[in-house]
């Protein structure tokens, strides 16, 4: 897809989604400032706002638009925003440079820009590097876990919604996936040769907070079970550590998050 094509697609998405970040009377003292890139892969954030999923999940969000990932990540590092949906390649590069970022969700990847991408793994990974992930600052600056789980739950619901609109943007030239997908990120990490020799083996894993996505998915699975085909597919693709334990002994409060 050309840059002009991407801009047109983004314009259409904005029009379709009627961008209005919802506010609600949840317990947050101030809205979570969610940066997003002018890129069709940011559509899950926009849809979650315009379709009221943030509000439905009890999280107040203010969307902040950025023209490029560098400025977005700089704002995240400076505390100007609380979370951001930016290009995964640049986000990984900044993590490798020592920026304290945590990837908590996926987004969308525009496909079709490079006709060789389907035939050449390097071209595919280059294209993937332009896709969107949602990142936050590392604790203690990051929003609380419960807020993040609600945020990602809303993004998954936005994904469900887009997938269920026949002929909508969920079925176009952008591949959406709310899963941060450690395996995909690790492929990109290696492709860009970011591991280096001296870095600890778990360096990347310490920067991908997949548990947030797993908890969000778990929360939605608890609500709908296996009845929702879109959700079931996401669940099948996720690699989440399962729950154990007899129900009488479970400490986890499903209304307050927890993990699998």
């Amino acid at each position: 897809m050309t840059a002009a094509g991407m801009n047109i697609l983004l314009g259409v998405i904005l029009l379709l989604l009627n961008l209005t970040a919802a506010a609600d009377a949840s317990s947050q003292s101030s809205p979570l400032r969610l940066g997003y890139l002018e890129h069709p892969g940011s559509a899950l954030c926009l849809a979650a706002g315009s379709k009221g999923f943030f509000r439905a999940e009890g999280v107040r969000v203010r969307l902040v638009r950025f023209h490029d990932t560098e400025r977005g990540l700089a704002a995240l590092a400076a505390g100007g925003i609380d979370a951001g949906a930016f290009a995964v390649g640049e986000t990984l590069r900044q993590i490798a440079e020592g920026k304290e970022l945590r990837i908590i969700a996926g987004g969308g990847t525009a496909r079709g820009a490079d006709p060789l991408a389907d035939l050449d793994e390097a071209a595919t990974l280059e294209q993937e590097s332009g896709g969107i992930v949602v990142a936050v600052a590392a604790p203690p600056r990051a929003p609380g876990k419960e807020v993040l789980v609600r945020l990602v739950t809303a993004l998954i619901r936005a994904y469900q919604s887009l997938q269920k609109e026949p002929g909508g943007i969920g079925h176009g030239a952008v591949h959406f996936d709310p899963n941060p997908d450690y395996r995909r990120i690790e492929r990109l990490w290696r492709f860009h040769d970011l591991q280096g020799e001296k870095r600890p083996r778990d360096f990347l894993a310490n920067h991908v907070y997949e548990e947030i996505y797993c908890d969000a998915l778990d929360r939605l699975m608890d609500r709908t079970g296996t009845k929702d085909g879109v959700l079931q597919k996401l669940f099948s693709e996720a690699v989440c550590v399962p729950d154990c334990c007899p129900p009488v002994a479970k400490k986890r409060d499903k209304n307050k998050g927890g993990s699998r």
Binding site: C240, V241, P242, D243, C244, K251, R252, G258, S259, R260
Partner: peptide, 29 residues
Amino acid sequence: QFGSAAEGLAALKAEKLDVGTFGTTAPLL
């Protein structure tokens, strides 16, 4: 006592525990 293997292993990783028994899949992951 932990309610899930993920929580337990996260505590082990954060060095809040010295030893843990949390299934086989989770530690391998």
